[in-house]
């Protein structure tokens, strides 16, 4: 058990960095424009990230396991660490990076090292969602933008009251966004530990029952929360105006759009609903909240004429799509070799 906890540290570190970076996608503009206080944003996002992770994190985690079922604690540790270092490296190079892409790359690195086959259909589904996610987010943002604009024009809400409603809206959207982030992205943080999980089911106060996987996700959720509280403030204060200058109301549209996208890619109930009705179902895959935000902001920017969009950043995102998984896979492969041959640890069974 102790060794498992030590191995889990890389996942917790990954969770911490996810909280530090991705909470800014949810509350960045609200906090940056001082519409919502950081403490409020951090508290709400922490609670809802944990709820999302524990209650809705299962679906996307299963998909990652289908891609590569990392069956040893030491292997999972190195997959997590390789992903974390890739993120660190890419962030230092100022390329917008996705935890999802890093972890998928690292899992493929483990598959290659352990000689396990990579399910190409799952892999292509995941890669497809990386491209589909920002596009879908952009479409949602445009639709929500027009709806909001129509309502504002029709209802003629006075400007001061509009400001108050926007604050309420940003808090609610932030809570939903945090839940969706927890549900979708916990797979990135803890998904690799599911197979080697040594936790047991627990019951809190005789009525809250968590299975072993949910306990794992709870720890991951707490790690994300710690990341939010300790390191996300600086990023929140600078985010929001990077791609295109947006108003608080447009920021609300962006948060709602990206939250919907993350939720769709994590919701098992919606997935089942679509399947039962013979509709093409949305795969349960961890997607990048940063890229969903970028898609939404670009969607709004385009309908405003596309003048204020920083197109250079789009090129960087494209580089990130290719470079992040490749770097993570290479790093993971080399590190597993060292872990196995220098430290004599079993990295796969």
């Amino acid at each position: 058990m102790l060794s498992f906890l030590i191995f889990l540290s890389s996942g917790l570190f990954l969770g911490w960095s996810l909280g530090a970076n991705d909470a800014s996608n949810i509350f960045g503009t609200a906090v940056g424009t001082k519409m919502v206080k950081f403490r409020t944003a951090a508290f709400i996002s922490s609670i809802f990230v944990i709820l999302g992770a524990v209650l809705g994190g299962d679906g996307a985690a299963q998909t990652l396991n289908k891609l590569g079922s990392v069956n040893s604690g030491a292997g999972a540790f190195m997959v997590g660490l390789a992903a974390a270092f890739s993120i660190y490296w890419m962030t230092k190079s100022k390329i917008p990076v996705s935890t999802s892409q890093a972890i998928v790359g690292a899992i493929i690195g483990w598959n290659l090292y352990s000689g396990k086959p990579t399910d190409l259909s799952i892999f292509s589904t995941i890669v497809g969602t990386w491209i589909f996610c920002p596009i879908l987010s952009g479409i949602f943002a445009v639709a929500i933008y027009f709806m909001t604009r129509f309502i504002i024009i029709k209802t003629k809400i006075p400007l001061i009251r509009q400001d108050m409603y926007t604050r309420f809206g940003l808090i609610l959207a932030g809570a939903f966004g945090a839940y969706a982030l927890g549900a979708n992205n916990i797979a990135n943080v803890m998904g690799i530990f599911v197979t080697s999980n040594q936790f047991h089911a627990v019951t809190f106060f005789n009525f809250i029952e968590l299975n072993a996987e949910q306990v794992l996700f709870l720890l991951g959720g707490i790690a994300i929360s710690v990341g939010i509280f300790t390191y996300s403030k600086r990023i929140m204060m600078t985010v929001g105006n990077n791609i295109c200058i947006i108003s608080p109301l447009a920021a609300w549209v962006v948060v709602i759009a990206q939250s919907f996208v993350l939720f769709l890619f994590a919701s098992q109930n919606f997935h089942l609903f679509l399947e039962q009705h013979g509709l093409p179902s949305i795969p349960l895959v961890p997607v990048s909240s940063s890229q969903a935000v970028i898609g939404a902001v670009i969607g709004i920017g385009l309908i405003k004429g596309g003048h204020g969009i920083n197109w250079g950043l789009l090129g960087q995102i494209f580089i990130g799509w290719v470079a992040t998984p490749v770097i993570a896979a290479g790093l993971c492969y080399i590190s597993l070799f060292f872990l196995q041959n220098v430290f004599n640890l079993t990295v796969y069974y």
Binding site: M35, R39, I160, R161, D163
Partner: peptide, 19 residues
């Protein structure tokens, strides 16, 4: 502890009246 900066409806109305 967690102070949410929601101006109450009455406060908003007061400012609207002042304007």
């Amino acid at each position: 502890m967690f102070h949410i900066k929601f101006p109450m409806i009455s406060q908003s109305r007061t400012l609207e009246n002042k304007l």
